[in-house]
Write a protein that binds this DNA or RNA. Structure first.
Length: 649
DNA sequence: AGGGACCGACTTTAGACAGCATGTC
DNA sequence: CTAAAGTCGGTCCCT
């Protein structure tokens, strides 16, 4: 409400407002919510990687909803309308301590301050808001109001009870927590979300629960299956989840396709599904509360098992209680080692957030962007700006270290070696490469790895390019399993020149991972069926999507990077490859797939029926197109119209 | 010979943003 | 640094 007041206040004064969130789904949600304000004439816009409207275009909107990275990218492009921005709202501000994405938030805040905009930071899990408010020059507003009362408790196995913080004790029958939770939920007719910390645990627990729950009625079951079909979950996913939803149970994690996730969320919200076992995907953002939430707290990380943070726990506990239906919500911790730990989760404050703008990677990326976008034109200016960061403040206070020295002595020279930045006395300016890299939103190191590897080699195969981009730091964060057995195969591929060797700084495992990603993408661009790919490579549909998305972005970026340093042949090859990755097609279908309404499957069918170019479509006549399987008259008509449009361009 | 219980070695472990130009099957 | 589940292949025993 406070954020909305600030946005509307700015609008009434003729200023623009920006609302920035960590997730695309959250951005969509806010965009829809804010659309209400069109009643008073405010024009609402959205800008994420999914819907782009290039920088200058957004001028027509009064309130713009973005993701953090998108806003950072907009600030770098410096469209003229930025002058008109009166307020920047940063949602889920605690993310500032996230190692990957926190630095982006920090930079957004700095840019906004530089614009003189009012900043509104929002967070429900922040123990040091005073510190952040002071840094941002904001006034702190605290509120503990919550639409539904939250009661927290934990399971004490030794005594076979759940102890709640309102003093209530709940007996656990047979000392079997999940059995008890399921039984009470069935008796009292409420829904439960269980948070596990590993995908396989979420899946196996969902299967166990399904065994304890009677089959639901057939119509409800069919309704759920319909949703999976409507949202376009893959056949293999429906097959896996079928036996669970039959009992009103499902699992939910990022390995599922977007469609399968939507189907689970939607079925739960409409009460068709009673139990969902999820990983922390459901903790942030998605509006899917339940009367009861059960939380497992142990996660394997960095070589051993450790408990999740209080902040993470609070984030998940916050899912308990549905505003329209419940008077209270209950969060139950399932696996504390003793009572002390239980109370620490319940009564403890979330860990104070600290700046993450201290890693070499983050500083490299953002130092380049500051100079490339012209916010900083000299060393002294750079130093002044860095002194405004939270990182500067945190490091000076905790260790007496001045981070600006590190940037100027280590990061800056490295960027100059990469020939992305040049200095003229104390004046700093970007090279063409530096400018390109910053605009493409890639890590400078990614660009250097690509250039170094491709310089001086001829025309490698798609697999070579794909393995290369999969090795870059912008890609290695993608999860991948089952690559250890590929060592021998990878070496022989390397020896026959099919793939690049491990580039300096890339570990053996990252190289093998890259090879497996290369193999997967190579299948994808050769039109192998999605279901077949995920089964043979043992990855989730969601994982495949992430790989495709990332590869499509990075092949495009690689193409532009090659172009900027005169590697023209590679630029052309990579450009073609990026289209092939985006659509999952062989080269001969690139022309057809440009048409709205035609993807990889229909394009192949048309090709087999002798329609191979846009000209063919315009020449053969509607009957022949409508006769092709999966294409009817309506679609054929649309296809012809779209082809005409493309032809006239 | 075939089936199944059992055992030990080995593998794996959360999430999700970004370019560009417009929809997919 | 505080683990646990699944997979795979082999062995042993019974029918």
């Amino acid at each position: 409400m406070i954020a909305e007041l600030a946005l509307i206040n700015a609008f009434l004064k003729g200023r623009k407002g920006i609302y920035t969130t960590p997730l695309k789904t959250l951005a969509n949600e806010k965009y829809e919510e804010f659309s209400l304000w069109s009643k008073i004439g405010a024009k609402i816009g959205i800008s994420t990687g999914d819907y782009d409207e290039p920088g200058e275009w957004l001028d027509k909107y009064d309130i713009i909803v973005t993701t953090y990275e998108r806003l950072d990218s907009l600030f770098r492009l410096r469209p003229k309308w930025l002058r008109k921005v009166g307020v920047v709202v940063i949602d889920e501000l605690h993310n500032i301590s996230d190692g990957e994405r926190g630095p982006t938030i920090e930079l957004i805040a700095i840019y906004a301050l530089k614009l003189g905009a009012q900043i509104v930071g929002l967070s429900a899990t922040l123990s040091n808001p005073e510190e952040l408010a002071e840094w941002l020059g904001c006034k702190l507003v605290l509120s503990s109001w919550r639409p539904v009362k939250l009661i927290e408790g934990f399971y004490i196995k030794r005594r076979s009870i759940i102890a709640f913080n309102d003093g209530r004790i709940e007996e656990v029958l047979n000392n079997n927590l999940i059995d008890h939770i399921v039984r009470s939920a069935l008796n009292q007719h409420y829904q439960v979300i269980i948070f596990q910390q590993a995908r396989h645990k979420a899946e196996s627990m969902a299967k166990n629960i399904a065994l304890k729950v009677p089959v639901i009625d057939r119509n409800t079951y069919l309704e759920i299956i319909d949703k999976f079909k409507k949202y376009e979950a893959l056949r293999s996913e429906i097959k896996d989840l079928d036996k669970l939803v039959m009992h009103g149970v499902a699992y939910h994690h990022a390995g599922l396709s977007h469609g399968a996730r939507l189907a689970v969320e939607n079925s739960f919200r409409s009460g068709l599904i009673r139990f969902v076992v999820a990983t922390p995907t459901l903790a942030a953002g998605i509006n899917m509360p339940a009367r009861r939430v059960v939380i497992y707290t142990r996660r394997f990380e960095g070589g051993y098992v450790k408990p999740i943070s209080i902040a993470e726990y609070k984030q998940m506990a916050g899912r308990a209680g549905r505003p329209q239906y419940d008077v209270i919500g209950e969060a139950i911790i399932a696996d504390v080692k003793d009572e002390g730990e239980g109370w620490r989760y319940i009564n403890g404050r979330p860990e104070p957030v600290k700046s993450a703008l201290i890693s070499e990677r983050a500083l490299r990326i953002h130092t380049l962007s500051l100079i490339a976008s012209g916010y900083v034109e000299g060393i002294d200016e750079l130093r002044d700006l860095l002194r405004k960061t939270l990182a500067y403040k945190n490091l000076l206070e905790s260790r007496g270290v001045d981070i600006t020295n590190y940037v100027i002595k280590n990061i800056l020279p490295r960027l100059m070696e990469m020939d992305m930045i040049r200095a003229d006395g104390r004046y700093l300016y970007p090279t063409k490469l530096g400018l390109t890299v910053s605009r493409l939103y890639v890590d400078p190191l990614t660009a250097i790895m690509i250039i170094d590897e491709l310089e001086g080699i001829g025309k490698p195969s798609p697999l070579y390019y794909l393995t290369l981009i999969a090795m870059t730091p912008d890609f290695t964060r993608v999860r991948m399993v089952g690559y250890k057995g590929l060592q021998r195969e990878a070496y022989s591929a390397y020896e026959s020149g099919l793939i690049p060797g491990p580039i300096r700084g890339v570990s053996l495992y990252d190289w093998l991972k890259a090879y497996k990603i290369g193999l997967i993408l190579n299948q994808w661009i050769n039109e192998v069926d999605e279901d077949y790919i995920i089964t043979t490579f043992k990855i989730g549909a969601g994982d495949l999507n992430l790989i495709i998305e990332t590869a499509s972005w990075l092949t495009y970026a690689a193409s532009k990077i090659c172009e900027s340093v005169g590697l023209k042949n590679h630029a052309n090859e990579l450009n073609k490859l990026s289209l092939r990755v985006r659509y999952g097609v062989k080269e001969e279908l690139i022309d057809l797939v440009r048409i709205k309404g035609i993807g990889r499957v229909r394009a192949r069918l048309m090709y087999m029926h002798g329609i191979r170019t846009i000209d063919d479509i315009l020449n053969v006549g509607i009957e022949r197109i409508a006769k092709i399987p999966m294409i009817g008259e309506v679609l054929a008509n649309n296809i012809i119209n779209e082809a005409k449009k493309l032809k006239n361009k």
